[in-house]
Design a protein around this nucleic acid. Structure first.
Lengths: 341, 341
DNA sequence: TTCAGGGGTGAAATCCTTTTCACAAGCAGG
DNA sequence: CCTGCTTGTGAAAAGGATTTCACCCCTGAA
């Protein structure tokens, strides 16, 4: 298993030119056509593949961009990743995905990798609002775009959904459907999406107080954006002396858990209203069908990548925050409480 | 936005030593404790982060491994990715994920990246049995492990499931449940998993011919391992003059599509038996519950990573193929055809 | 006292490209 | 015929780490 590497020197020698010329052939310098051709031939014959490390080292910039997401098992993020990929596809950049697992340590390591590997750009859905430190990347001049979640005080371009507004619309819908004791299962306290969606929920409830709506923090649960967390939170809510008659769950996976817990307790929507922020994966299989705030996951990725590419091309426009709209899809799970309940 | 990079030289100067000594401090060479400490301090003070490109260039090997998967939106692969990550976690290696999207061109590009970036190792679930060329990586001495799908004639370690056996067991179960016109929706012709699961299905049917089972290739459909493909294939099957009374679908996403198509046609399991190879994501929400061949996705990733790490540590053992067992989980969707059907 | 051996150190080579710089040749215009 | 420009080219520097090699100093054994 010989590790015989073919370098630009070998190609140069074979083609009877200097390494500089070979480099120019591959990078669009001026070379006479015939010479270029003989270089091409030599390279092909020898099976030359440029050493990207050397290239990146010299150019001070590699040709891959990193996408750091907090949960690779959440279809929302994989769809977002597709958006990023498709946008990057049109350039010569490759996308590598890093899964921080909602763990700021893992995330830090990946950020270090991105910095140390001189990646051309970074798109990050931050694991934490506070502990995600984009400083080194920014100081080094690496373009960074925050997507979905916004790190607290970082000076970066951002692409996100209108979380607060979505939360408000969702909660108003539950109120209109006749639910009164509306609970909220939201994500970890550090995440901007958690907070904003919760804020929207609170605002809607607050506005409807005179209407008999119950605004009580006993109905608010912070979980971890995962199935298990949603299940546990829902169990807790169902165990309250006066259980909620509806629940607004701020992410898709937790909704799955919540539905499981409901099922376990023998309750089903819309007897207990269930509204998910973000579509549940393969929602078509779920009965009754789920009302959800539709989150433009793919477009978020797409927009983030576009913004990044723009920035990489040297755009000096002031920092932007792009906010994408969510839309409420009303389905069966929020048809209203049953009379006897 | 100054790109002031702190190099090992700067640290050396600040600590009053040579760059070689700084390198030794970070890589475990012999250095007197006090000197080591002053280097640490200088590095911390300057915010030194080693340039991983330079390091990898010199060492001829980077410290990231690539995992190339064909569909990032398939929970099977994301779970597998978790397995790989968790195994790599215990080392100093980082995992980057590349999504080939079942596209051999995209896959080729990622393989080039892996080669050009001198990645420490590659785990690949090949998009194609024939067009996936691992040759250059292998020639270069990069450890490679094939997972789930096996490229045709590549000389690599492999980790996969007992696809053929699983397919046979699944089909036998459908036969025992009383189904007779059993269709099979399988994946693209190039993929080893498609072929093997199909082979298992055929073997089981063949063995049961005397029993009234119909073994007819009109009941076999090749699709693309995605939801849409499964839906389209199921529609075709339902449009046959004599539609099948059960279907064995060789992957999870296609099963979702098939269920959609059944629903659309007003048919439901177990009236039409449905058996999925690979668990459907969040199967707990699906009614009736689905019989499935459970695929040890996480363990496949884990085992592949372990094998890779072993190989990277210079194991010179002969090439291995690890086959992990699948288990049939019998649930409601294959309870047997209704009498009138 | 001398010599062997080993630990700690720095200078310099090395990894492989890209890019700068200098130079030569060719050509047009004066 | 000479100047000035444009092109094409190769030598060499640069990018930032690791690693080899030579060296010094010290200890322990002969």
């Amino acid at each position: 298993m010989r590790t015989q590497v073919v370098t630009i020197h070998d190609v140069a020698r074979a083609a009877g030119v200097s390494p500089a010329t070979v480099s120019r052939v591959f990078n669009g310098g001026r070379v006479t056509p015939e010479r270029a051709q003989s270089v091409q031939q030599a390279a092909a014959a020898l099976g030359f593949a440029p050493n990207r490390l050397a290239r990146s080292l010299r150019k001070q910039r590699s040709s891959v961009i990193a996408l750091i997401i907090p949960d690779i098992e959440n279809p929302f993020f994989t769809s977002l990743a597709r958006g990023v990929e498709d946008a990057a596809q049109r350039t010569s950049l490759s996308v590598v995905l890093c899964n921080s697992d909602e763990d700021t340590d893992k995330e830090r390591r990946y950020l270090e990798v991105a910095l140390g590997e001189q990646m051309a750009g970074v798109i990050v859905a931050a694991a934490s609002q506070d502990d995600t430190d984009l400083g080194p990347l920014i100081a080094r001049g690496v373009p960074v775009v925050a997507v979905d979640r916004r790190p607290h005080d970082a000076e970066v371009d951002a692409v996100r959904a209108d979380d607060r507004h979505g939360g408000e619309v969702a909660t108003r819908h539950l109120l209109q459907a006749g639910y009164r004791r509306i609970a909220c299962i939201t994500g970890p306290e550090g995440a901007s999406t958690s907070e904003e969606r919760l804020a929207g929920y609170r605002a809607a409830l607050h506005a409807a107080r005179s209407n008999g709506a119950v605004a009580d923090d006993a109905y608010v649960r912070h979980a971890d954006f995962r199935v298990e967390g949603g299940r546990a939170a829902m169990r807790e809510l169902l165990a309250l002396p006066e259980p909620p008659d509806a629940v607004f769950v701020t992410n898709n996976l937790m909704t799955i858990g919540a539905l499981d817990a409901l099922d376990e307790a023998g309750r089903t929507p819309p007897g207990v209203g269930v509204l998910s922020f973000g579509d549940v994966p393969w929602a078509s299989l779920v009965r009754p069908s789920l009302t959800a705030v539709e989150l433009p996951s793919y477009e978020l990725g797409r927009a983030a990548a576009d913004l990044l590419l723009q920035r990489m091309e040297g755009g000096t426009a002031p920092l932007q925050t792009v906010v994408l709209r969510t839309t409420l899809q009303i389905r069966e799970s929020t048809a209203g409480p049953v009379a006897s309940d």
